[in-house]
């Protein structure tokens, strides 16, 4: 029997569970430097391109790019891990560069081009990096994987563009996609299952293919 025979999905359960938690939970610590005149929540329009499609949203100014993608556009491939820029699960590519979508406000992306894991490839037509992750078993639970793949794609692009890293020996020479270089550059993506070595195998295959 499938879950949806009852009209219940894992997502639906999570969403309703989240709502009851929100009601029962204690409000967060009050801001200690909040001035007396805190404004009311403000909504704002923002237009951006996500995975090649123009999207217009009206969001609370507090909405992060991550929450806009997940909760407004229902692109739930991008994951919320720590929500503080420490784990990399929320990594997306904006105007060709990888960023933590949790540490960016949606309203700050007017006119930007955002690529999420859903825009890199599809189940029918995987991006080469996605296929390499499958081939090399570059995940276990899979939660960090969309962020890992977006980051991995951007890392190889950074190396190709000659962006140096902490482990680049000669700052004035072109960096190469070595094991050390890729490990250092992927340090903003945490995998608690510890799939790192297989992620590196996947990246190495793609880096080699592009020469």
């Amino acid at each position: 029997m499938k879950d949806d025979d009852f009209g219940i999905t894992r997502r639906g359960v999570l969403a309703s569970g989240g709502a009851s938690f929100a009601i029962a939970s204690i409000p967060p610590a009050r801001a200690e430097i909040a001035p007396a005149s805190q404004p009311m929540p403000a909504a704002m329009k923002v237009a951006l391109t996500v995975n090649g499609k123009k999207r217009e949203l009206e969001v609370d100014t507090r909405t992060t790019l991550l929450d806009a993608l997940r909760e407004h556009l229902h692109l739930t491939g991008t994951k919320k891990g720590c929500d503080h820029g420490q784990c990399g699960a929320c990594t997306v590519i904006v105007d060709g560069r990888r960023i933590n979508s949790c540490l960016s406000l949606a309203v700050m992306h007017e006119g930007d081009e955002v690529t999420t894991i859903e825009g890199l490839g599809t189940p029918e037509k995987l991006h080469p990096m996605q296929a390499a992750f499958v081939k090399h078993d570059g995940y276990q639970c899979g939660y960090c994987t969309p962020g890992q793949i977006c980051s991995a794609v951007a890392v190889l692009d950074e190396i190709r563009r000659g962006v140096p890293s902490h482990v680049t020996r000669d700052l004035n020479a072109r960096p190469r996609a070595t094991n050390d270089e890729m490990r250092e550059r992927m340090s903003g993506n945490i995998c608690r299952c510890g799939a790192y070595s297989n992620i590196l195998e996947a990246m190495t295959e793609i880096a080699g293919r592009r020469g």
Partner: peptide, 18 residues
């Protein structure tokens, strides 16, 4: 915004206007 938004989520920073 990488530091400011982190601190705003924790309400350590609470600007009324950005």
């Amino acid at each position: 915004g990488t530091n400011l938004l982190d601190l705003m989520k924790l309400e350590i920073e609470a600007p009324t206007h950005l």
